[in-house]
Design a protein around this nucleic acid. Structure first.
Length: 477
DNA sequence: AGCCACTTCTC
DNA sequence: AGAAGTGGC
């Protein structure tokens, strides 16, 4: 009569529906995490993200142990190995019910369908919880019964639903009174950590686990949240929540984020509304991923943009990756990503727009590079953001709306503080020169000249998208 | 969750 | 000259 909590990207004990439901039954509870290193490789999971997951698992094992729950860690290889590994585990431990948090991308759903079939002959009862979003993917539909593909009307319905049915209190796991703490064996974690190729110093400044995540939430909602609307676009400020990592690995529940922010509407209503809107974007892109599985094959949301002839200029792509395009804000952004595993959201838009519109390189190359580097790499959000920048996605930036890396730099880093923090070759330049160092090349001899000029970008992008549209019309006529 | 060219208004 | 508004891409 054992209940099993199968952990994936929901590495916490607090406010965890599947865990609380398992504890609510009679009988013992166990927990399992299946390592899938080959799947991590196939999905381009960044080394720092692997580190974050493994260290969060260590804390999870300890926290579950205090609740009297054993967390086992088993190497399943990849998703294909999961159904067999789970079936073996269920047989070995007499598991009669499996509890998990639902995941929505295609490979994850196929994995879970295969698990359903593998466990059916064993008579294991399966329970899934839509606990990684505030509004589950199939709940909101347009008047035509189709999924929402435009954010603003989605957001309106999403808000209304949460106002009508507010999330209750966060859940606290309640073990039986007789429970005794059990020790946690972390040897699998140490082995897996040893296999990660992590540059020294990369994890400095990051703390894994649900305790650190909770602390980050508390300091955000009582700090930067109040002025979030004003400060969130300035990469030199600590104006954002820094919670994307915790939310993507599930060391924090999105429900708790909503509740804590919602409770502070009186003290800074604009900041709260703006930040909750970011939580809505997160749900929006997850429901897009759930409703349009072809996105998992690398297809653009707008089919006609699949015919755009992107440039394949390897030297330009390398310069972008390494932060030496000659455009200070773009380079500062990429160096922040490379040296910390994280990038400010405004800069994700700036650097993605530069790769896709100025260099005119396929958005999928940028999407992949971000996944390979980001500690918070989330398939739905990353794909959604890249397709927004590339103008290939749902509710994307119109293709003629191109950021100027200079204008963005002047608007969002006016004094050049952020650029100076990332690019030592430019640290001595004044606020006037730092956005366009090529105007005074003698002042920054160690900094690269621009790899491409800025003029004519909009015309070239417009022509390429129009050509793709014509081709598409020709194909389908 | 643009940018730019152009116009009109104001000093 | 510079602010402020407008419309096209």
């Amino acid at each position: 009569m054992t209940a099993l909590v199968w952990y994936r990207n929901d590495l916490r004990v607090q406010d965890h529906q599947a865990l609380s439901a398992a504890l609510g039954r009679d009988g013992p509870v166990r927990a399992l995490y299946l390592l899938c290193p080959a799947q991590w490789d196939a999905h381009d999971v960044a080394p720092i993200r692997r580190w974050y997951v493994l260290e969060s698992l260590r804390e999870l094992g300890t926290n579950l142990g205090r609740l009297g729950i054993v967390l086992d860690i088993v190497d399943a290889g990849d998703f294909a190995g999961v159904p067999g590994a789970l079936a073996d585990y269920c047989r070995a431990h007499g598991v009669s019910a499996l509890f998990s948090t639902r995941e929505y991308p295609l490979n994850e759903r196929r994995r879970d369908q295969a698990v359903v079939e593998a466990l059916r002959p064993l008579g294991v009862e399966l329970k899934g919880f839509d606990d990684a979003v505030l509004v589950p993917p199939r709940v909101l539909r347009t008047g035509q019964g189709t999924p929402y593909t435009v954010f603003t009307p989605y957001r309106r319905r999403w808000d209304a639903l949460l106002a009508e049915q507010p999330p209750g209190m966060p859940l606290t796991p309640a073990p039986a009174r007789s429970t005794r703490a059990v020790p946690f064996d972390a040897s699998m974690i140490d082995t897996a950590l040893a296999a990660i190729d992590l540059p020294p110093g990369l994890t400095d400044g990051w703390q894994a686990g649900e305790k650190a995540a909770r602390k980050q939430l508390d300091s955000f909602v009582d700090g930067p949240l109040r002025h979030y609307k004003r400060d969130r676009d300035m990469p030199s400020l600590p104006g954002t929540s820094l919670l994307s990592t915790a939310l993507s690995a599930g060391t924090l529940s999105v429900k708790r984020c909503f509740i804590e922010a919602d409770a502070r509407r009186a003290s800074g209503p604009e900041g709260v509304t703006t930040w909750i809107s970011e939580l809505a974007w997160r749900d929006f892109y997850r429901q897009i991923m759930a409703n349009y599985p072809r996105l998992a094959w690398g297809e653009p949301f707008r089919p006609e943009t699949g015919l755009v002839q992107w440039s394949s200029h390897d030297a330009h792509f390398q310069a972008w990756c390494e932060g030496r395009t000659g455009y200070p804000l773009v380079d500062a952004a990429m160096r922040q990503l490379n040296s910390t595993g994280w990038m400010h959201n405004r800069l994700r838009m700036v650097s993605a727009m530069f790769l896709t519109k100025n260099l005119f390189i396929d958005w999928r190359l940028g999407e992949r590079y971000f996944m390979q580097k980001l500690i918070d790499g989330d398939f739905a959000a990353n794909n959604g953001g890249w397709q927004w920048s590339a103008s290939t996605g749902t509710d994307a930036a119109p293709y003629f709306r191109v950021f100027s890396p200079v204008r963005q730099s002047e608007r969002f880093d006016p004094e050049g503080h952020f650029i100076r923090s990332q690019i030592p070759e430019l640290a001595h330049l004044d606020a006037k020169t730092i956005h366009q160092p090529w105007r005074r090349p003698m002042l920054a001899p160690d900094y690269p000249a621009p790899v491409v000029a800025l003029d004519g970008v909009r015309e070239r992008v417009t022509a390429a998208f129009k050509a793709a549209q014509d081709l598409y019309k020709g194909d389908t006529r």
